[in-house]
Design a protein around this nucleic acid. Sequence first.
DNA 1: CGATTTTCCAACTGCATGGTTGGAGTTTGC
DNA 2: GCAAACTCCAACCATGCAGTTGGAAAATCG
Lengths: 205, 205
Amino acid sequence: MPWDTEATRRRLLDAAVEEFAEYGPAGARVDRVARSAGVNKERIYQYFGDKDGLFRAVLERELQRLAAAVPLTLEQAGDLGDYAGRLFDHHTDHPHFLRLLHWEGLASGGEAVAEAKRAALQHDKVAAIADAQRSGLVTGAIGAGQLLYGVMALVDWWFVAPHVVRMTVGAEGMDRAAQRAAVVELARRMTAPDRDEPPTGATSR
Amino acid sequence: MPWDTEATRRRLLDAAVEEFAEYGPAGARVDRVARSAGVNKERIYQYFGDKDGLFRAVLERELQRLAAAVPLTLEQAGDLGDYAGRLFDHHTDHPHFLRLLHWEGLASGGEAVAEAKRAALQHDKVAAIADAQRSGLVTGAIGAGQLLYGVMALVDWWFVAPHVVRMTVGAEGMDRAAQRAAVVELARRMTAPDRDEPPTGATSR
DNA sequence: CGATTTTCCAACTGCATGGTTGGAGTTTGC
DNA sequence: GCAAACTCCAACCATGCAGTTGGAAAATCG
C-alpha cells in the first residue's frame, strides 16, 4: 500500500482535537490519540516532537479555522451584536475550539501558542471597533479593547462553564437558539451608543 | 506532640486549593499536596476517600466562601453593576476559586459538586433580579437568568482566559482597577432599562 | 494503669503512561 | 536496479503516580 504522510498527519490531528478538547493537555492520553487515529504512537513524536507539541499544533489549526470563518472587518464592527451571533454560531458548529482555548488558558502559564500572530489579529479587531466608535455606531464610553473583551466573554461562557449555566438558567435555558438570541441582545445593549452620543471624529473609511 | 486533626484536615485543604487551582484535577499530584501540607499522603485517603473526593471538598469550601462573601439580595439586585464590582473584588482577592470552577466545568461531565444547593442559590439570585425588573431598575427586555449569566460571564472571563485578555487589551490593559471599572460599566450598560421603559408590575418588597 | 481505638507515617505496590528502539516495508535518486 | 533515505510499526523501557499496608506514637476509656 502506498503512503500518504499528509493523511496520517491529518488523522493524528483530528484524533488529537477530540482527545485534547475532552480531557485537556494533562488528561489527554497519547496512546488513545494514536489508537483512535489508527496510527502508531511513534508517529506522533516524529511529527510533533512531544505531547505538548501535538497540543500546540492542534490549537494552531483550530485558531486558523476560527480566524478564517469569523472575521471582523471595518464594515462589520458597527454591529457587534451580529459579530457575537456569528461567533456563537461558529462555536456551536465547532465545539472543540473553546474548550481547547480554555484548557490552554488554565494550564499553560507562559507564552501562548502563536502569541504574536494572535495578538496582531486581535489588534486589528480592536482597531475596527475603535473606528466604529468614531463613526458613532458603537459607544465611546468604554475602550474598544474592553468592548471586544465583553463580546468574547458573553459568547464564550456558555461553552466554558456549561454546568454553571445549567444551574443558573435551568434545563430549559440550555436551548441553543435561546442562548444565541440572549447573547446577541446582551452584546447589542452593552455596545450601543447612548441615545444622544455624538460621533467623535472621522472614520478611516 | 499532641494531635490536631482539624488542623491537618485544614492544612490538606489549603494545600489542595493551591494545587488544584494551578494544575487542575488531572494535573494535580496527590504527593505534592501532602508534601506541601507537611502531612503524610495516606491522610488524604482517610479524610477524603480519593483524589476526586479531595477536589470536591476543596471546591465545596470555596463555594461556601463565595456565597457568604458576595450575596445578591432583593435590595442589591437593582444595581447589577455594583454586583459585578463586588464579584470582581472577591475574585481578585481569592484568585483560586474561578480557576477551580472552570477546571470543574471543563473536566467533569456529569453532575456538578453540590449541584442542588448551588442551583437553589442561583435560583434565588435570578428571582431577585426578576424583582428588580418588575420595579423598573433593570431592563425587562431579557430574561433574569440571562442577565445573571451576562454579569457572571463579564466578571469571570478576565480570570479564566488571561492569555486572550493579554492579547486583546495588551499589557497595559491588565491593570486590575481598569478591568474592574470596565466590567462595572459593561454590566451597567448591559442591564440598564431603556430610557422610557416602564415598571411592569408589583415588586415583592 | 492496662486495653482499645485513633492518628499518623515510611515504605511499598502495581500499573498506566510518555517516550524510545530496532527493524521491516516503501519510495526516491542515480 | 540498487543504495540511500524515508515511513511506519511492534515491542520495549523507565518512571511517575494513585492508592495501600503494617506498625509506631498518641489519645481514650474502663
